[in-house]
Design a protein around this nucleic acid. Structure first.
Lengths: 119, 119
DNA sequence: CATATCGTCAACCATCCGGTTGAATATGGC
DNA sequence: GCCATATTCAACCGGATGGTTGACGATATG
């Protein structure tokens, strides 16, 4: 599973991990605090955080005995660009989508996602 | 794995399936033709197509003995919207994003408490 | 009818995944 | 030094996943 797209999509495939990402939108959080709302063990949440970190979706920084988790929204870019190749969904927030797409254009866009099967 | 976002993201997590979607961008294809470029068995590809169909990413229609596979880009919409939120609202309007997520995709997560975050 | 093609089904296998528990490794506070 | 807190590690477990093979039903075609 070296492909970064593999990692990002499969990280996003778990609802617990998506919930964690949504929580981190508000603020950086310590591992224990991330785990608090969930009914699973701390170790399980810690593993989820590792998966997110390896996908690049978060970073973790240890200060003292506390490890702080920080969202890294840029990691979603490649995946988002890939998906954009599949049709022009009218987004809910058109202005937001326009800004979003404009930002994406600075990237080496996948000119024709179908031409190369290099997924 | 009832959550549609679960299904879409985990369907996209496999490079073979992403390659299949990319192929279907060009044209509708029969199962055998989809399988041709891959070095795995036809049965394996057939299973991948089932996964894609259950995620809603493709539809399959049988005409004669041939089953035609058709891309359904709209299925990516919810996932795209979800991801778009992380790029777009980053540090801008977090409350707005929360309301946005709650309204757009209210699907209970695996867990009671975090479900308010509407993964 | 006989035969080839299309696609799925069923059983099987190895590996991965998400979870648990209990011990271990920091670090901080008294 | 001693104890509590924060986090990971290691071993384990059940179930999902991605692949194989061989048999099978259904449909074209000669």
């Amino acid at each position: 599973m070296s492909n970064p797209l593999d990692q990002v999509f499969s990280a996003l495939a778990d609802p617990t991990r998506r919930a964690i990402l949504a929580m981190l939108l508000e603020d950086d959080m310590a591992v224990t605090d991330v785990a608090e709302p969930f009914s699973m063990s701390l170790a399980a949440v810690s593993k989820h955080l590792c998966v997110l970190a390896e996908a690049g979706l978060i970073t973790q920084e240890k200060r003292g005995r506390v490890k702080w988790c920080k969202l890294e929204p840029d990691a979603l870019r490649a995946a988002s660009v890939w998906m954009q190749g599949f049709g022009q969904f009218e987004a809910v927030d058109l202005d937001g989508l326009e800004r979003f797409l404009a930002a994406e254009l600075d990237d080496p866009g996948p000119d024709d996602p179908a031409s190369s099967l290099s997924v």
